[in-house]
Amino acid sequence: MKKMSKSARIGKKTSNVFVHILLGVLAFIWILPILFIIMVSFKSDPGLQVRTLLPDVILQKVKLSHPDMFANVTRGFIPTLDNYKKLFTDTTNVFNFPQMFLNTLIISIFTCIISAFFVLSVSYVMSRMRFKMRKPFMNVALILGMFPGFMSMIAVYYILKSIGLTEGAMIRVALVMVYSGGSGLSFYIAKGFFDTIPKSIDEAAYIDGATRWQVFTRITIPLSKPIIVYTVLQSFMAPWLDFIFAKVICRANKDYFTVSVGLWNMLEKEYIYSWFNCFAAGAVCISIPIIILFMVMQKFYREGVAGAVKG
């Protein structure tokens, strides 16, 4: 490498610079909408129109020195916290954001407990137990995955209605059931993890007289921290991200809206003008915790895929 000619080194250097400039441009494109939504959440005038994102102080200075620039813009960007204030205090109006937040939080806590239990049970059974219905079950899971998820949505709605879960506070119960009910089918990742735990550990325990239940709860579960965290986080996030099921089951019951249905409604034609800035504020408030959870989840996912016990 040391003997590389001068021109080759220069070529390498320019391509290096080029790559970094390219990455910078791409990163800018990817980060731009995020910056944009943060700016909008601090914007003062209503509506979709965004005249300028230049802060007012800078704009006025530019105007002083170059009067012909920004001729059609009189006022710059003056950040305000009013949108956040409106979002959290204007609860009498059409959108009661604190209530939506609470609804979603309750739903997601119950969902993640139930689905984590379902997913871990099914994955453990599929990984460790051998019985007649094992292969058929896995094939059925594969086939069911090929139907569009919400094809059954209407049917689920009527089933829930016939047992009286679509009115009033029961809507929350209905949503918990919808999010966690079928979760037993998404066992593939956790099963793959359990497969990496050496069977010799289990066998040693059986020799010592442990039952399978004891092996599951005292050995497998404690060894599976990354995949448990991953499963819990994923099911916790589902109610915050989903909006189709929530929309069909809540319908027009504003008191039981989840965050995503509420935010979606803010962009409907009749509300978009006065609520666009609040939408942005709400989106920022939701996104920050979700981003943190997502990053944590990715970390545990990588650990989980890397396997349980080394060697």
Binding site: V122, F147, S152, A155, I159, G181, R212
Partner: peptide
Amino acid sequence: LHKTLLALPVTGVVVFTILPLVFM
């Protein structure tokens, strides 16, 4: 143990996935 562990998840899948699917 598989019967115990699968009972609830399978019930969930039958009620919230298979039954609605057959219905649809």
